[in-house]
Structure formats: structure tokens, C-alpha cells
Design a protein around this nucleic acid. Structure first.
Lengths: 115, 115
DNA sequence: GCATTGCGCTACGTTTATTGTAGCACGGGA
DNA sequence: TCCCGTGCTACAATAAACGTAGCGCAATGC
């Protein structure tokens, strides 16, 4: 019998905050967001929830292994949640975080013209 | 299920924007920033240039291999430059990019209290 | 009933990225 | 000259991500 929703299976073995041994929040956050697909997942969920498979489709068919890993981390961080009705959606906190990336979109457009 | 096989028209040599086969600027940017140490490097250069060794020190002694790789990518992207006087500094574009992350600092503080 | 479909999620072998340690070539003082 | 500090690289070992397949479960259809 598998434990469902076993995101607490980390047991504090601290593989974790890779790029930050200081523990400063900004470092922890930059480390979390600096993992593959983290930023992309938050971005793809920006306007509506997606099922795990739909999310995978939007993320260039990234492997489900790492996608589930990121989703677990982002859920534990409180940015993403698994909706009762099914699918993944941003939490209030996740939406706040995402808003700090909105300027990034505009920046990306400008940047693509300049390099 | 359409496989878009022809987004390789990027004038890119080879390194290959990993997480984005679409070529949309925001995807390319999210992919670049989603590599290990990218965000951290930009963050650490936020107020003054640093030599490669100083940068490594601030980045928890990350291995010089990947640090140089990121610096090359960030230089090619036009966010970072090697100063004539020595040391790495942000370009104007890099500074703009960094400013989109300033709210992240405040967010990180709030976030650390909520989880 | 009993397949079928879609969901979240996992196993596992292969490939790729990152780490850690050591060291190079160059240039500018002293 | 020798000694630093710079940017940068080699290379084996490790960790992370990939790709494919498939599980258990619940809802739906027949």
C-alpha cells in the first residue's frame, strides 16, 4: 500500500538546498528556482491549473521523474498545490512569486532583439 | 503531438537551449536562468564586479568548471562582461535583468516566515 | 459486472550536467 | 628573477535529468 501524497518523505536528509549553505532566504529561493524546470513550471501554471500530463506537454515532454520532483519541491515550498478537483495550480504565494516574473516576459522580448 | 522539429534555426552554435525547443524568448531565458548558479551569479554581481575567484567564494566554492560555463553563457547572452580592469560585472542589460529580481528579495523574506 | 480512459506518480537503465581537485598560461609588480 | 593573482581548463567521480515503461486508483462507458 503506497503512501499517497508522500511529499514529506524527505526526512531532512538535506540533499536539498544545494546552492546555499548559508540559509539566507534569498539563497534558498534562488537555489530552488535554479533547478531545472522550476521556473518553467511556475511560468506554465501562470494563468490556469494544469494536470501533470498537460504540464508535461507544455514543458517539451520533460521526463515525469524530474517534473514530479519539482512539483513536490514547489508544493513543499508552498508555491504550488494539487487541487482537489485534480491538476496542479498556483497557491496565493505562488501567484505572488509569479508576479515578480512578469517583467521578465517583457524583458525577454527586448533581450531577444538585442542579441 | 506535433513534433516541431525545425526550431533549430537559432544561429546558435551548439550548446542548445535545453529546456526550450520553441525558441520563444521567455523560454530561452527561463532555461538559461534555470541552470545551476545562473541566478546566483547574477545576484552576487548585483552591486559590484567580482573576480572569478571572489565570485566563486561568494557562491559557496562552487566548482570553477560550471562557474566558467555559466559566465560564458551569461556573457554570450549579454548580461555579464569581463571588465578590462579584470573581474566580472553586469552589463546594462544585466542590470536591467537583475532589477526584475529585486522584488524577489522581499518575497524571499516573507516566504521564509511562511513555511 | 469489466473493460477503458485519464489521473498522479514511480522504477530503472542510460545519458548528461555538476562536482572536486589539480593545474595551466599570462601579466604585473617587487 | 620569483611570487602572486588573474581567467580558465582537464579529468575522473558523483549527482541530476532523461526516456520509457508501467503501477494503483477513480471515474466513466458498455
Amino acid at each position: 500500500m503506497l503512501k499517497r501524497a508522500s511529499a514529506m518523505n524527505k526526512t531532512e536528509k538535506k540533499p536539498g538546498v544545494r546552492g546555499s549553505r548559508t540559509g539566507r532566504p534569498i539563497m534558498v529561493l534562488l537555489d530552488l528556482l535554479g533547478r531545472r524546470w522550476s521556473l518553467r513550471i511556475l511560468w506554465e501554471l501562470r494563468d490556469k491549473p494544469l494536470t501533470s500530463r498537460a504540464l508535461r506537454a507544455t514543458c517539451d515532454e520533460a521526463s515525469p521523474t524530474v517534473l514530479q520532483a519539482r512539483l513536490s519541491e514547489l508544493r513543499e515550498a508552498g508555491f504550488v498545490e494539487l487541487l482537489p478537483a485534480g491538476g496542479y495550480g498556483l497557491t496565493g504565494l505562488g501567484r505572488e512569486l509569479n508576479e515578480t516574473f512578469l517583467p521578465l516576459h517583457r524583458f525577454a522580448e527586448r533581450w531577444s532583439k538585442s542579441h
